[in-house]
């Protein structure tokens, strides 16, 4: 715990099993502040399960998840309620985009700041001053983020029917609303074409540089991961294979066999 100086997340001996099958097995890694960190592995390696454990959608059987929250305190996330995670400064996106079709783009983004709304129920029922002020303030914040991403023009449209690449960006915008310390992205480039992927790489770098946060991402696209990540952690069958820079991971034989092995066939 005391060696968290420049780390934002430190996972120690994480394990979870589903019906006897170990989905994550004694996994440990850590993420530095300001780092873009990739988690890779073949299908079914347990990547999303790791994410779900960190964000407390699943309760791990064993292990610690130390996180330096936005107050600078280090705490173990295990046992924290799922809906309390975002308040610590940790926010995620989903593999299958989880946006709300009936809400407009800007409304969807505003949901990202849900915990910043303090107006009481009574206040909301009658749309009193506090409700109006909060709405205006947070709507402005959402619009600024959308503007930055070049999405301001569609802010009042419904999300239903927007192109896939745009939806991915809206979900990312929603994740930025609270200035998180760590953003977890579940396959951000999946389903995007080359141009969209390239602009996403730039966007993620920009977010890291401007917002001074760390990013943890899962991705299948090796080119994307190698080009973007500072360090990569490769896992298979829930177990750690290797951690290192993209170059080190590419050279690692175990990783090649488990993940890139197909190239030899």
């Amino acid at each position: 715990m005391d060696n968290m100086n420049n780390k934002v997340l430190k996972i120690e001996n994480l394990s979870i099993a589903f019906g006897g099958l170990k989905a994550v097995d004694d996994l440990s890694f850590d993420i530095n502040e300001g780092e873009i960190f990739g988690l890779i592995g073949p299908n079914g390696a347990g990547k999303t399960t790791v994410f779900n454990c960190i964000t407390q959608f699943y309760k791990p059987d064993e292990g610690k998840i130390y996180f330096k929250n936005n107050k600078g305190e280090v705490e173990d996330l295990v046992g924290v309620k799922t809906h309390e995670i975002i308040g610590k400064g940790l926010v995620r996106t989903f593999q299958n985009i989880e946006l709300i079709r009936e809400l407009t783009v800007v409304e969807n983004v505003m949901v990202g700041a849900h915990i910043d709304f303090k107006a009481s129920l009574f206040n909301q029922f009658f749309r009193l001053k506090k409700t109006r002020e909060e709405e205006a303030k947070i709507r402005k914040r959402a619009e600024d983020i959308l503007d930055h991403m070049g999405l301001l023009a569609i802010k009042d449209m419904l999300t239903a029917g927007q192109p896939y690449g745009v939806l991915k960006k809206i979900e990312l915008a929603r994740a930025l609303m609270l200035n998180p310390k760590l953003i977890i992205l579940d396959e951000p480039a999946a389903g995007l074409n080359d141009t969209e992927t390239l602009s996403l790489v730039n966007l993620i770098r920009e977010i890291r540089d401007e917002r001074n946060c760390s990013i943890l991402l899962i991705e299948h696209d090796m080119k994307f991961v190698n080009g973007l990540c500072d360090r990569i952690c490769a896992i298979n069958f829930g177990k750690l294979l290797a951690i290192g820079t993209p170059q080190e991971i590419q050279k690692n034989q175990e990783v090649q066999i488990a993940y890139l092995g197909k190239e030899d066939d």
């Binding site: 926010v91 989903f94 009936e102 990202g112 709304f117 909301q124 749309r127 709405e135």
Partner: peptide, 20 residues
């Protein structure tokens, strides 16, 4: 208001709602 949006989000995706 924000409670309404939270309810809508809950209805659309419980996972997204609790993550937010």
């Amino acid at each position: 208001s924000h409670t309404g949006r939270a309810l809508s989000t809950m209805r659309g995706s419980e996972a997204a709602a609790s993550a937010m």
